[in-house]
Computed example of a mutant assay.
Amino acid sequence: MSDASLSASQTQPGDASFGDFFALLKPRVMTLVVFTALVGLLVAPGAVNPVIGFAAILFIAVGGGASGALNMWWDADIDRIMKRTRGRPIPAGKVSEGEAFGFGMALSGISVVMLGLATNFVAAGLLAFTIFFYVVVYSMWLKRWTPQNIVIGGAAGAFPPMIGWAAATGSVSIEAVLMFALIFMWTPPHFWALALFMKGDYHEAGVPMLTVTHGRRSTRNHILVYTVLLAPVALALAFTSIGGPLYLAVALFYSLLFLKGAWEIWRRDEDMAEADGYATEKKVFKHSLYYLFALFGALWGEAILTYYGVGGWQILSVLV
């Protein structure tokens, strides 16, 4: 029996600390969830009471964390195998699988009910569907069944700005759909870049990531194609009610940078990648994280300009 399995088997209820349960929430992933949901709420038309807005983001964050806890509960077996995930609370023997399941289910119920009471049941329904999609559709079904796991499963991570928008408006519009589409199209090249230099982990765990089922050459091709498809989606937001020249400039710059990285990944073979320790792949993966923060930050910037009555397109028309 491995050290991880031994420690897990010796986990006793009540041994876990607050930090162990917090780690179940996947706080780094939650940062992106909270940020994109917050932007979705802030760029939506109309004013939102700050207290209601705070409650909405809090319960969206709790729902995102609940998804993470339930994902760790279900994936505990493969988390014990993968080097990247062996330190998580369950494989490390800090939290039992039963505790993680109960924690995740409790937070799921609390987050959905409280979001509905604080805002509206459109937002609550979207949050409930997001948790279901991530845990059942992605974690339990797609992740271990098809190399398209990241493509389809990426929808779960794309819902937060739509939920934020719905919390503010009680509805969904083209702007919310495009914010969803932006994250949805970004997810595959982002995770495939990671998979290129983490292939061994997925292979050992039996996860049919594209790098495992089709090889790294095919994965490089897919990264380039999806990055090309991502660019027009990102730029389209500039011409909606929440966009403007500031967002357009940021989206254009970062999309070109992402495309450049995808092109560099596509041109490389395995000998080149192994020779420099997959430096390019790691660089593109890191940049892809900045990509979403930059674009959603620019949308927030456009909302601030609009709030002060100086929309970006108005400024540009004056300058021209």
Score class of each variant (00 low, 15 high):
27 P>S: 06
107 L>Q: 03
26 K>M: 12
31 T>K: 06
25 L>P: 02
56 A>V: 10
49 N>E: 14
64 G>Y: 06
38 L>R: 02
19 G>Q: 05
31 T>I: 14
93 G>T: 06
138 Y>E: 06
43 V>H: 03
57 I>K: 01
32 L>E: 03
93 G>K: 10
22 F>H: 12
77 D>E: 14
85 T>A: 07
35 F>Q: 04
75 D>S: 11
92 A>E: 04
135 V>C: 09
70 L>K: 00
23 A>R: 11
34 V>M: 13
114 M>T: 13
96 S>L: 04
69 A>R: 13
98 G>F: 04
68 G>E: 12
16 A>P: 04
145 W>N: 15
21 F>D: 10
56 A>N: 01
33 V>L: 12
111 S>C: 08
88 R>Y: 06
76 A>V: 07
27 P>H: 03
74 W>I: 14
129 F>C: 01
97 E>A: 15
139 S>E: 14
41 L>H: 03
25 L>K: 01
31 T>W: 11
33 V>K: 01
25 L>M: 14
135 V>W: 09
110 I>A: 09
108 S>P: 05
132 F>A: 05
138 Y>D: 04
49 N>F: 12
99 E>V: 12
24 L>I: 08
28 R>F: 08
35 F>K: 06
24 L>N: 10
103 F>G: 14
85 T>H: 07
80 R>L: 10
29 V>P: 05
61 A>G: 06
115 L>C: 07
62 V>L: 15
30 M>T: 15
41 L>T: 12
107 L>K: 03
144 R>D: 07
14 G>Q: 08
83 K>E: 15
141 W>H: 11
135 V>I: 03
70 L>T: 09
125 G>L: 03
127 L>C: 10
92 A>G: 07
32 L>F: 04
119 T>R: 04
40 G>Y: 02
44 A>T: 03
111 S>T: 14
72 M>L: 14
73 W>C: 07
116 G>T: 10
16 A>C: 04
94 K>Q: 13
88 R>M: 07
63 G>K: 01
105 M>E: 14
41 L>C: 06
38 L>M: 14
51 V>G: 05
26 K>F: 03
100 A>V: 12
43 V>K: 03
75 D>W: 09
105 M>I: 15
23 A>G: 05
56 A>G: 14
24 L>M: 08
54 F>A: 15
111 S>E: 10
92 A>K: 02
67 S>D: 09
123 A>Y: 00
108 S>T: 15
91 P>F: 01
52 I>M: 14
119 T>Q: 08
44 A>F: 11
84 R>G: 13
53 G>A: 02
144 R>I: 06
12 Q>C: 08
20 D>I: 02
35 F>E: 05
60 I>N: 00
140 M>D: 09
53 G>S: 05
35 F>V: 13
125 G>R: 08
79 D>N: 11
22 F>C: 09
25 L>R: 10
46 G>L: 13
51 V>A: 15
68 G>F: 05
66 A>T: 07
133 F>K: 04
143 K>A: 12
42 L>E: 11
126 L>R: 06
23 A>C: 10
32 L>N: 06
